Simulated scan of single mutants.
Amino acid sequence: MPITDPDTRVRLGRLLDAVEPLLAQLNQSLLVAREPDWTASAFRWQRRQTPFGSVGELHAIHRPATLRLEDLQNVDEQKRLVEANTRQFVRGLPANNVLLTGARGTGKSSLVKACLPTFRDEGLRLIEVDKAQLTDLPEIVECIQHRPERFIIYCDDLSFEQGEGAYKALKTVLDGSLAGQADNVLIYATSNRRHLMPEMLSENLQASHQDDGEIHPGETSEEKVSLSERFGLWIAFYPFRQDDYLAVVAHWLRHFGADEAAIGLARADALRWALERGSRSGRVAWQFARDWAGRVGLS
């Protein structure tokens, strides 16, 4: 029913004028990110929903993974490269963004996580970012670029499908925008794809060649390569040989308290375990050792 009384309309107008700035202030307060617990050594970027929209925040992880670099077996060269690059970074020296690619289960993600306990006391902090939130990377960098700690932004199992636009935000942070790169931020990413995007046979048809034989790849291929090239350090991981796999199995069995005799007896079971899964890798070795330790504990 319309309000016809002039005095009532005036009072309502004054009430709305008084409430409007309060609503704006409430809206602004709800959309302001809460200060994270900076005493933590690991964080996860998450978006919090509010009645007025979503806001991105760093959520502290108070019990991060405790994997050590010495626990990673048969990836000595990869471990040396990552450890050296991270040491340069935490000591304020030039260092590169890192892309770890290759066979599944061979230690790519574990190697990144193992850097945290190794360099935590030197100021290293780890931020886990899901691929779906890569568009928030500029916002994340803005939150941490003036902090005294050294931050590695960690993107696990990174890959893009045709048409996805999140990789553009990643490219911007890797190379820096007009604002320049933050001195205390690096990106470490793992992927099963060397160029982070699927490669199609049709892209070869886009290539052209000159009369002198020089080959020019198609624009699609150039776009894919341009993203991976922004990582200064590429580190490849390869499937384990049988002896490598058994060596990792032995390491983890010792971790769970097995003696050398028990390790020898477990060899055939370990090979059967890998055969059933169609893979010989550090992850499969760890899973077998856990299963073995559980069965021994029950018996």
Rank of each mutant, 00 (worst) to 15 (best):
A60L: 09
H62T: 11
G56A: 09
W45V: 02
D71H: 14
R44I: 14
P64Q: 05
T50L: 00
V75Y: 06
L69G: 03
R48L: 10
E57H: 02
A65D: 06
R47V: 12
R48I: 11
A40H: 03
G53I: 03
A40D: 04
H59N: 12
H62S: 10
R47H: 15
D71V: 13
Q46E: 15
R63N: 09
T50G: 03
R68F: 09
R63C: 07
S41R: 12
T50D: 03
H59M: 11
R68V: 09
Q46P: 12
G56Q: 06
H59C: 11
A65W: 05
D76C: 10
P64A: 09
T39G: 04
V75I: 15
W45Y: 12
N74R: 13
G56M: 07
Q49Y: 14
E57K: 00
R68H: 06
R44G: 10
I61N: 05
Q73H: 15
Q73W: 14
R44K: 12
S54N: 08
T66S: 02
D76L: 11
F52S: 07
T66W: 04
E57W: 01
T50V: 02
S41P: 13
A60G: 09
W38D: 00
W45C: 01
Q73K: 15
R47W: 13
V75T: 11
A40I: 01
P64K: 04
I61T: 04
T66M: 05
I61F: 07
V75N: 02
S54M: 06
P64M: 06
P64W: 06
A40Q: 06
R47P: 10
L69R: 01
P51R: 06
G53T: 04
L72I: 14
W45H: 04
L72V: 13
W38E: 04
T39L: 02
L67V: 12
T39P: 02
Q73V: 15
R44D: 12
D71S: 14
A65K: 03
A42K: 01
R47N: 14
D71F: 10
N74K: 15
T39F: 05
D76F: 14
E57L: 02
R47E: 10
T66D: 08
S41C: 13
A40V: 07
S41M: 09
L58D: 00
G56S: 08
N74V: 12
F52Q: 05
Q73C: 14
F43L: 07
V75M: 09
D37L: 04
R68Y: 09
L69D: 03
A42M: 07
P51T: 05
R44L: 10
F43I: 08
I61G: 09
E57P: 00
G56L: 06
A65V: 10
S41K: 09
V75H: 03
R68I: 12
W45K: 00
T50W: 00
S54W: 03
P51D: 02
A40G: 05
D71G: 13
Q73Y: 13
Q73F: 15
D76H: 14
D76E: 12
N74Q: 15
Q49P: 08
E57M: 02
E70H: 13
R44E: 11
A40F: 03
L67Q: 04
R44A: 11
T39C: 07
R44M: 13
W45R: 00
W38Y: 08
F52R: 04
H62E: 07
